[in-house]
């Protein structure tokens, strides 16, 4: 009787487990396979492709390092690569310099219209990237607003051409694009700081500045890291901004890549450049993963 009961209890539990497994496979299986097919495999395939070789009108599947050697030895590509890294770094720093105080303002200073202001910060994230880049052409261009206004008020006679089609215009536009990318996660991190910590610090006699440096800043580091990763990776691999506003000195790695997939028709070499971007992205993720626990440990 007892052993029978034991069997009935156990088998019902087993049937339940089987049902749960079926449900799991039903929910998880299709998206998992989809991501394998259209994300993991394609990204992986880029690696493979980058070791192949372009022949006249085809691609030869012969393993070789030539594409990577070319990235490194050809001074043009190397310059562009370093230029892109530099632009990404400058943009990341500048976007933080603007975005952090903005987030701080939202979290600690703005009281009345916080929801509206928050909305104003994130709305640009979801509006057309292309158009927001393009509009800087209208602003900085030779016939653009800045030149127009300056001539109109008589400050200059001839339009200036130094404010567009160079690295400055690329950086300015990218900073403009990425301020919300930084402000948003920083704000989320600042929001989460328990007010008691801050008050306790003030209570213990730390001044505002010291409270900021010792309590608020360290606690907001995860937000800074998240925002910086987005900014660095996405600006490093952008081709829209340098195409529209770059000019000769503003060329970035993204321009070269689209060139390889367009006129130059050297897909393996383009893939090698893409792998460089992917590696930078992965390095950034790894760096962040390493930095975050350390930032947390410092607080604890």
């Amino acid at each position: 009787m007892t052993s029978e009961a034991a069997v009935s209890g156990g088998s019902a539990a087993k049937a339940l487990r089987r049902k749960r497994l079926a449900l799991f496979l039903l929910c998880f299986g299709p998206p998992f396979l989809y991501l394998i097919c259209f994300m993991i495999l394609p990204y992986g395939n880029v690696f493979q492709y980058s070791f192949w070789k372009k022949e006249l009108y085809t691609v030869a599947a012969e393993f070789n390092w030539e594409n990577y050697a070319r990235v490194w030895t050809n001074p043009l590509y190397r310059t562009v690569l370093f230029n892109s890294l530099e632009v990404a770094a400058i943009v990341t720093v500048c976007a933080n310099l603007v975005g952090y105080p903005l987030a701080y303002f939202l979290a600690f200073v703005a009281r009345k219209h916080r929801t509206l202001l928050y909305f104003l910060v994130i709305a640009p994230l979801w509006t057309s990237f292309l158009l927001r880049v393009f509009v800087w052409k209208l602003i900085l261009g030779v016939d653009g607003i800045i030149n127009g206004v300056l001539i109109y008020i008589g400050l200059i006679d001839e339009p200036m051409s130094i404010i567009i089609y160079n690295r400055f215009s690329v950086c300015l536009t990218l900073v403009y694009i990425f301020i919300p990318f930084v402000a948003l996660p920083v704000y989320a991190a600042l929001e989460k700081i328990p007010r008691e910590y801050v008050e306790a610090s003030m209570d213990l006699g730390a001044g505002r500045w010291r409270t900021f440096v010792r309590v608020i800043l360290p606690l907001s580091i995860p937000g800074v890291i998240a925002g910086s990763i987005f900014t660095f990776c996405l600006s490093f691999g952008d081709f829209v901004t340098p195409t529209l506003l770059g000019g000769p000195s503003g060329i970035m790695i993204g321009n070269i890549i689209i060139g390889q997939f367009g006129a130059a028709f050297d897909w393996p070499f383009g893939s090698a450049l893409a792998v460089v971007i992917l590696l930078v992205v992965l390095a950034m993720i790894a760096l962040a993963a390493a930095a975050e626990p350390r930032a947390k440990a410092r607080i604890a």
Partner: peptide, 17 residues
């Protein structure tokens, strides 16, 4: 929850399943 051992009987009916 389903018992690992034993049985639950509600109104005379074993309900484990």
């Amino acid at each position: 929850e389903v018992p690992d051992e034993g049985e639950v009987v509600i109104e005379g009916q074993v309900v484990d399943a």
